Simulated scan of single mutants.
Amino acid sequence: MIRCLVLDDEQHAVDLLVSYIKRVPFLELAYSSTDPLEALAFLNTADVDLIFSDIEMPELSGLEFTKALRGKHHVVFTTAYSKFAMEGFEHDVLDFLLKPIIFPRFLKSAQKAMTLMSGLDKPKGEEERKDYFFVKTEQKGKLIKINFDEIDYVEGMRNYVGIYKNGELVQALMNMKDLESLLPMAQFVRVHNSYIIRISRIQMIEGNVVRLKNVNGAIPIGITYKNAFMDRIK
């Protein structure tokens, strides 16, 4: 069971999400509030797994509220303004719900949380999921460690994949399908047959290209990937 907290400065928005939570068998309402300071106080005394938080609030914004959590909880942002989506993903939030929120979209977000937490809540003694992997290179016997949080994007090439991390290119002897299976897809999204990008690096979307922070040039968005990509960031 996933224990949830709902935070929004508008009571009708809180009531809607509370009603949605009650309809999902694996979700449980732990607390709801229109006051972010009260919500923070509650979080200091109780266990909560998932937080649905509005971004635009008068006393403390959702972004400021999330910073105060220090990464201790999974967060889904809710807002009426799509312009906040990119900034929200910079905080590595689980999802972003654009108001008015319909139940099917809410359920999709809840299922994403369930999938992620099922992978994290392993039995004691079982090895935790690694935040890195090793890749083979053309140099015989050489393996390079790749940390997930260093990756900007991945490009599929003829005989290998190019992993761009912090401005450095690592050429790995593997194909895109194998690499995609290693990446935590809550943090990455495939936008083209030849490109996978890190969501938190997105700076701007212009037509059929996406621009990433600290990356020169633009990444193309494939026609067959565009709808799924846009759904991820809405």
Rank of each mutant, 00 (worst) to 15 (best):
L107T: 00
N216P: 03
P100A: 03
G217S: 08
N227S: 11
I101T: 12
L143I: 07
V209S: 03
D92R: 10
E10F: 15
L43T: 03
G88T: 07
K136L: 11
Q187G: 12
H73L: 13
R105K: 10
N208D: 09
V161Y: 05
K72G: 01
G125W: 04
Q139T: 11
R3I: 10
D131G: 14
N214R: 10
E10P: 10
K226S: 01
L7Q: 01
D131Y: 10
N208C: 00
L97F: 08
E127L: 03
G217L: 01
I102S: 05
S181C: 11
E155N: 14
F52I: 07
R129E: 10
I219D: 04
P100Y: 00
D35H: 12
I101N: 02
K122F: 13
D121I: 15
F103T: 10
L43A: 05
L120P: 08
G222R: 01
N216L: 03
Q203N: 14
S200P: 07
D231Q: 13
L5Y: 02
D92F: 09
S19G: 15
F229P: 05
G141T: 12
N193Y: 02
G156A: 12
R105P: 05
R129L: 15
K145D: 02
R129S: 12
F84Y: 14
D231E: 13
Q187V: 13
L173M: 15
A113V: 11
M57S: 05
G156P: 04
Y81R: 06
G62P: 13
L212C: 09
K124L: 12
N44P: 06
E56Y: 01
M57L: 07
V215A: 00
T137W: 11
A41R: 06
D152K: 09
E87S: 09
F96D: 03
L37E: 10
K67C: 11
A218W: 00
E87Q: 13
L98H: 02
L183P: 09
H73S: 11
L183E: 08
V135G: 02
V209A: 00
Q139E: 10
E10V: 15
V209Q: 07
L182C: 13
F65S: 06
G125I: 13
Q139N: 04
E59T: 15
E28L: 10
F133P: 06
R23C: 02
K130Y: 08
V170M: 05
V76C: 05
